[in-house]
Design a protein around this nucleic acid. Structure first.
Length: 594
RNA sequence: GGGGUAGUAGCUCAGUUGGUUAGAGCGCCGGCCUGUCACGCCGGAGGCCGCGGGUUCGAGUCCCGUCUAUCCCGCCA
């Protein structure tokens, strides 16, 4: 029996016609005589009626369980009076079964198949991921992801981009994330590495004259997982020649506009806001600020310049900063909530979390006794302190002080949301370009500079001379696209002159020349054969879809995600290799650490 | 590697200051029911209270350890 319609399609106009439907038994309502079946397929739900006059059908149906697969042939009839179900798209009709095929009988599912399953333990849902995905809500996410990719492909095609596939079997790169290694059977002792991103290949495509490249590329990073991080994930990877940063901003704003319009029907405002890395840190305490709410960090350096409170004045005297922000209306926070905020601050290296709250017109704080009247007045004015407010402080080196309060700001915002004093709307899309990152960061552990983005990022032209004298001051031509506190993507204009690239590798990053030659020699060579100026960007597609679908976890928008240990529960991967496999691969396993 | 939270029926959860035989809703099984649409009604089964120790006359409850999941820090050029 072949289907003639999907379960979403039939209406009054089809009354009288004979149709064939197939799908899953969503629910059964047996009234002893008459029996109703809700039949579900990926498009919708249609009520099937088994008439008591047809005893044969009823016997065949038996006590068939939900989630069994059946095919039904029958006559479409209009429902009359109060048998119409207004809350169902196909509620104006029903199909009176004449013939029935039972295609597959289902066992009772281990968890409910309705929306209440959203609360079921994730490990169980992942073990039975095929059932979890079968739920309409999750099928809709797969569809939304498909529409997102489709919008991207259409846009990129119209903008004259060429989609090129790059190798999955690459080689190890010395910097960056830990990689997955793949042993080479034909080259004993040698290993491929799965790509962290197609970075180097896409730059070679620019040298090759492709000019405009994109790819929905799978990437791999063997780092610890988070709710927004999976060991394999998908990037929208883009690279163009003969462009500058402004061209890139305009292109990507057009892309986002298109995606949001095609997927959600939302019209985004462009151009997007721009903010320097310094301002982002200084005002919001993160390099990916959530612009949907304020509570900006203030600099209290002037207020406490000559303070008798050693914690504050000491920080200022040693070149640090005193930062603060006002969590408006949060003065009534509980001891536990305060302790959680303090713990969050401490996890970023704070010694404690100083605060002042204002209740009943009175300021209350353990540090109040250290502050002069002028300082209190200055604070009150700077931070607009009113009754019911609480102000948090951080006094240490500037960047750390900002980071600490940046974290406290986010946590405090959640507490305010819980109290309904603050609304953070998931369908309010506040895009932001974060720009002018430092090209290099000093790694205290390794005692050397590391690239803040990656070593192929071009310095801002006027900072080029600082590469030798003061690498920390060099700004990179790097940009991040941030949406509602999430880093959606980032990229840069690249270095395309071999001598500058070599200098960055060897003189600034202090990578051994032999290592540079073995890892990047081909690239330096390529740059000697007419490399065009170029730049690119890459977006986390999974993160983008997570926001579009208004979900909390990246796992919700990946068909078969991995748990926090990197295992895929349904198939129990990874698995143990056999001795023969290992022999072929020239690998011997060390005994596990006890 | 570190910190937080959780683990009681198939699922989601409750379980009082330690005290009879550990409960509820949904699901499941059986019965009844010809207009339901989360159908209804009646009856029933189902528990190593994550695991291992300990304290106690007595532990789901207190203590120690451990495992699992998840969130966060480190890490993620």
């Amino acid at each position: 029996m072949k289907r003639s319609h999907h379960c979403s399609e039939l209406s009054k106009n089809d009354a009288g016609s004979t149709v064939q439907l197939c799908g899953w038994v969503d629910s059964v309502r047996d009234h002893g005589g008459i029996l109703f079946v809700d039949l579900r397929d990926r498009e919708g739900l249609t009520q099937i009626v088994l008439d008591p006059a047809n005893q044969e059908l009823e016997a065949q149906f038996g006590s068939i369980k939900p989630e069994s697969v059946i095919a039904v042939s029958g006559e479409v009839r209009e429902r009359i009076g109060d048998t119409v179900n207004a809350s169902l798209a196909t509620g104006a009709i029903e199909v009176h079964a004449q013939r029935l095929e039972i295609l597959n009988v289902s066992k009772t599912p281990p968890f409910p198949m309705d929306d209440s399953a959203d609360k079921v333990g994730e490990d169980l849902r992942m073990t039975y991921r095929y059932l979890d995905l079968r739920r309409t809500r999750n099928l809709d996410i797969l569809r939304l992801r498909h529409r997102t990719s489709q919008a991207i492909r259409n846009f990129m095609d119209e903008e004259a981009f060429i989609e090129v596939e790059t190798p999955m079997l690459f080689k190890s790169t010395p910097e960056g994330a830990r990689e997955f290694l793949v042993p080479s059977r034909m080259n004993p002792g040698a290993f491929y590495a799965l790509p962290q991103s197609p970075q180097q290949y896409k730059q070679m495509l620019m040298v090759a004259g492709v000019e405009r490249y994109y790819q929905l590329a799978r990437c791999f990073r063997d780092e610890d997982l988070r709710s927004d991080r999976q060991p394999e994930f998908t990037q929208l990877d883009i690279e163009l020649s003969f462009i500058d940063r402004e061209d890139m901003y305009a292109l990507i704003e057009g892309l986002m506009k298109r995606v949001w319009n095609d997927v959600l029907g939302v019209d985004l405002e462009t151009p997007f806001l721009r903010m320097s890395y310094f301002d982002a840190m200084n005002r919001f305490g993160v390099d990916k600020p959530d612009m949907r709410f304020g509570m900006e960090l203030q600099d209290c350096g002037e207020v406490f310049a000559n303070s008798g409170f050693k914690v504050f004045s000491g920080a200022l005297q040693s070149g640090g900063a005193v930062k603060a922000f006002n969590a408006k209306g949060l003065a009534d926070l509980t001891q536990g909530e305060l302790r959680n905020l303090e713990d969050a601050a401490k996890s970023l290296g704070a010694k404690g979390l100083a605060f002042i709250k204002c209740e009943g017109g009175e300021w209350k704080s353990p540090i109040l006794k250290f502050l002069s009247e002028e300082e209190k007045a200055g604070l009150g004015k700077l931070l607009d302190v009113e009754d019911g407010d609480i102000v948090f402080f951080a006094a240490t080196e500037w960047e750390q002080a900002c980071s600490i309060l940046g974290r406290v700001r986010l946590d405090a915002a959640q507490l305010l949301v819980k109290r309904e004093l603050l609304t953070i709307d998931p369908s309010d899309y506040k895009f932001l370009w974060v720009i002018e990152f430092p090209l290099m960061l000093f790694d205290e552990e390794a005692v050397r500079f590391v690239a803040s983005h990656h070593p192929f990022t071009a310095p801002v032209a006027e900072d080029l001379s600082l590469l030798d004298s003061d690498p920390k001051k060099v700004r990179g031509q790097h940009y991040d696209l941030v949406l509602n506190g999430v880093e959606l993507g980032g990229g840069s204009i690249r270095i395309h002159q071999p001598q500058i690239q070599k200098k960055v590798f060897e003189d600034v990053l202090k990578i051994d020349p032999e290592v540079v030659e073995s890892r990047f020699g081909y690239m330096l060579k390529a740059f000697e054969y007419g490399a065009p100026p170029h730049g690119g960007i890459a977006f986390g597609l999974d993160r983008m879809v997570t926001i579009l679908a208004q979900r909390q976890s990246i796992r919700d928008v990946i068909a078969f995600p991995k748990n926090q240990k990197g295992q895929e529960m349904m198939t129990s991967s990874p698995g143990i290799a056999t001795d023969k496999q290992l022999r072929d691969l020239h690998i011997r396993c060390a005994p596990p650490k006890s």
